[in-house]
Nucleic acid binder design. Structure first.
Lengths: 304, 304
DNA sequence: CAAATGCTGAAGAAAATTTTTCAGAAAAGG
DNA sequence: CCTTTTCTGAAAAATTTTCTTCAGCATTTG
């Protein structure tokens, strides 16, 4: 067996001294780790460095691996055993505590305080929090029910920025049910799609600033045909809301010249999951069929 | 014997729950302590809370008292034993370290505990945390530099699921710089695009499970042409990593039959922001030009 | 100053943690 | 498809840690 092992030095006391933080060490050998070991390091890094301070048993349990896996892993990192590893962790913690600058926990531990990775993520989590605080669960559930029901055809429309989102939603909806169509409001051809919209149908419209005229026109015409309109927009709300029966406002603030569509994607994925749960029997069948077709087309790798 | 003992409560799990921090508790009973015990608390408070995290023996030694003294002392504080005391210490440390959103039980306040809105968001924030823990800021910065540099042409490719993401990235990149092309690995026409790839170019590839054969082929061929390959993948890593100079692993776990691409979007948007910052002068000009064009096309509403 | 009380730590007992072993499972290679 | 290699966790063994006991010492009090 080829054993990967980081270099280790012993000083006069026999205590091990290794270079770099454990976090860095883990990342540097991450590629050489096995499945269970990666699972373990994920747990360690997730709540770093706290998670490693309990007993080896506790750490193993919370990572969902066995204690020998933990023992082997810390040896790969270059420590003589779990206590040695824990000692190093405590040392790091101590160093961090005595350093007054490092008081704020960074998202990306190894990135400096003001790095864009941390700044951006900070704002995004705030957006998520504020968005979720404004979603009406009842409204959400009713929309889920509407979209899961195959008696209603579903049309999905997005604008310049939100095109990717609507495309993503459309792709997933197609797997779960029939009667889903993607309308490109950026194309001149969208009136053609509207021909099929009837009063029992649902039109999902994505529209964030700067709100597009063609999207508003689309909403107006779909509304005239009696369709139910679901609007996913930003906190300032697209004018489409006048025609919409259901409106979801998502926070899109970002430390950038652009807005962040993370919260829109979050809402979209949550909707997808809810719809899937509401129509699991049907969705399962369709997914299996799809899998079969994929098997016959060799699009995907059989073995990872 | 008159035993001093702070009040202690047991919850359903039998775990002890005490009020106030250990530091406060020690101070409050300090007057009632004996000589050896004061010696001990001095040591604990001197390097609080780190000193208490080793073994009882170590703590006793560094305080110059015996282990029974420590054991008696923590019982006076109201803990059932040294491990119980240590657990409390770890809890305090964790509270100090962890960010407030980690303990957010209900994201959507009005939705019930187990509502999909809360369940999904919980998992997503975990994904974000774990993803950020794995991003190497240095690698991130280098990729930012590469993509901001107009001397390198940029090709962006996505698969079935990641098509929307690559489309989104492409749209933003187009605003910021020239020489950006979107390759559809799902179409048979992608070899045509590869004709233009030279050794100074950068190919950004999105690939999450199930990894697509055509994407791997694309990477292989781009690699043969000497292009620098940036891979954005999931935690299990696409086989494309063999050809990639830069690999970013994003957590995509979701309480769903599908994976969540939120973290990929987060990384993408952060990249966009970083690239924008790195080339702000140029980007500003291009954005102004774009605005002018929009003004002439009446695509957007002039007044909201 | 003597007796009583309480404090302290050495040593051993109990309990737990950590490490090792090994067999079955999974993955890789032919 | 089969063989080989590697990985993984259950269980046992080894080690460490924690707790208890108890005899000696210090302090207080009358």
């Amino acid at each position: 067996m080829l054993t990967l092992c980081l270099q280790k030095m012993h000083d006069d006391d026999g205590r091990s001294t290794l270079t770099g933080t454990i976090h860095e060490r883990i990342k540097s050998i991450f590629d050489a780790l096995t499945r269970a070991e990666r699972q373990l390091t994920d747990t360690i890094l997730e709540n770093y460095p706290m998670s490693g301070l309990g007993s080896i048993t506790r750490l193993a349990e919370s990572a969902g691996v066995s204690t020998p896996t933990v023992a082997r892993m810390v040896q790969k990192l270059g420590y003589s055993g779990f206590p040695d590893f824990q000692e190093a962790l405590r040392g790091e913690l101590e160093a961090r505590f005595s350093d007054p600058i490092a008081k704020h926990e960074n998202w990306a531990q190894t990135a400096p305080q003001g790095h864009i990775l941390n700044r951006f993520t900070e704002v995004v989590t705030q957006n998520i929090r504020q968005t979720l605080a404004h979603v009406d669960p009842e409204q959400f559930d009713r929309v889920t029910g509407l979209l899961a029901d195959e008696r209603h055809n579903v049309f999905i429309a997005g604008g310049r920025i939100t095109h990717a989102l609507s495309d993503y939603f459309h792709m997933h909806m197609q797997v779960m049910r029939k009667g889903v169509e993607h309308i490109r409001s950026t194309s001149n051809a969208w009136p053609h799609s509207l021909l099929d919209v009837s009063s029992s149908d649902v039109v999902v419209i994505y529209d964030i600033r700067r709100y597009e005229n063609s999207t508003l026109k689309l909403a107006e015409m779909a509304s005239k045909r009696g369709a139910t309109i679901v609007l996913i927009t930003d906190q300032w709300q697209s004018p489409v809301r006048e025609y919409a029966q259901y409106t979801f406002s998502c926070r899109i603030e970002a430390p950038s010249a652009w807005d962040s569509t993370i919260t829109l994607l979050l809402l979209t994925e949550t909707l997808i999951t809810a719809i899937q749960e509401a129509s699991w029997e049907r969705t399962k069948l369709r997914m299996n069929e799809l899998e079969d077709m994929f098997d016959h087309t060799r699009i995907f790798r059989k073995f990872v």
